[in-house]
Computed example of a mutant assay.
Amino acid sequence: MSYKTLLVHIDDSRHSPARIALSLDLAKRWDAHLIGLYTVCTDLLPGALRKSESRPFAELEARHSELRQKAHDSFLAAAERAGHGSVEWRAPRGPAQEVATLHARHADLLILGQDDSKDAASYVAPNFVGNLILDAGRPALVVPHAGTVQALGENVLIAWDGSREAARAVADALPLLENARYVTVDIVQHADGAREAPVGIDVAAWLDTHGVNASFSATPRHIGANAGATLLNRASDMHIDLLVMGAYGHSRARERVFGGVTRTMLESMTLPVLMSH
């Protein structure tokens, strides 16, 4: 099993080149077609241009075209250096969230970047990454803005709670899990955590039918820490390079509300996280 079409989100942030490099590495791994989707904030232009609303529209549009062309050239140059020819550039017009969701639905795996509050050019729309994960119906590999990704998918931690979202995430991650050196299914225990063990054992047995040798563990929640923070601590202790988990969210009034663990990961991730909804 493998991913045949990957989609990487490209913007004008300083993190975009690292995302592109990772997506090219994955595309070569599976001999997959890679789509570079350039989508930036459509309300105000990124970076310093946000402070320049008084500029004439034509001047702002010219600057936007310049940034778009720079991103286009950088993407194609990176693909050429990587020796991967099956790439495609897209820079569609329209509301960023709607456009990204539409194009994401025609890919097997999305490669997205964690929002960085210290880099204005990484802002696309409110909760852009989280909304895309929940609405696109596709698994998304979210890359943290801090640090560098040295390896991906060698040591994998699956956050399991027996939910539909967790089951979807594990199935969506199979191309990565099948080639991992070490996989563990982990449950963050609640007060009645002892009753959760058989559920984790069952999913490990299911993975075995797909040739994935996975161990099972149950982690007590750290005192004063939520489940998301406990998972991140567990991943650090085990030198995990990929976390697989379900993404949770629902609409409340006019805002999208993310589940506690999902919100923690989107805000505080320290390693790449594959999320599915």
Rank of each mutant, 00 (worst) to 15 (best):
G259S: 08
E88L: 05
T39H: 15
H210W: 12
V149S: 11
M269T: 09
E178I: 12
G224T: 09
R29W: 02
L141K: 02
L243Q: 08
H222G: 14
A214E: 12
G259D: 05
A225E: 14
V257N: 00
Q150P: 03
G200D: 14
T209V: 13
P220H: 03
S2L: 05
M1G: 08
G224P: 06
H190D: 10
K28E: 13
T230R: 08
E267Q: 15
G200R: 13
G94P: 12
V142N: 02
I20A: 02
S236W: 08
E66T: 13
D172M: 09
A100H: 04
L26G: 05
P272V: 13
W160E: 04
D202Q: 14
D116Q: 11
D192K: 09
A71M: 03
Y248W: 09
T264Q: 11
K4Q: 14
T39M: 15
G228W: 15
K51W: 15
M265E: 09
I133W: 05
D186W: 03
A136K: 12
E178K: 01
L110I: 04
A140G: 02
H15F: 05
A77K: 10
A159H: 07
A100G: 07
L207Y: 07
V129R: 00
A253L: 07
R14A: 15
H106S: 10
L44G: 06
T219Q: 14
T39P: 12
Y3M: 11
R221K: 02
G193D: 01
G47P: 04
L60Q: 12
H190Q: 07
L67R: 04
K118N: 00
S251W: 06
K70E: 05
A214Q: 06
A247R: 03
V188H: 04
L110F: 00
R254N: 09
V40M: 05
S52L: 14
E154W: 08
A166K: 07
A82F: 12
I223E: 15
T42S: 11
L24E: 03
N155K: 13
A247V: 08
L34A: 06
H9S: 12
V185Y: 13
F216D: 10
L141I: 14
H190I: 07
Q114V: 00
P220E: 09
L22W: 08
P198H: 10
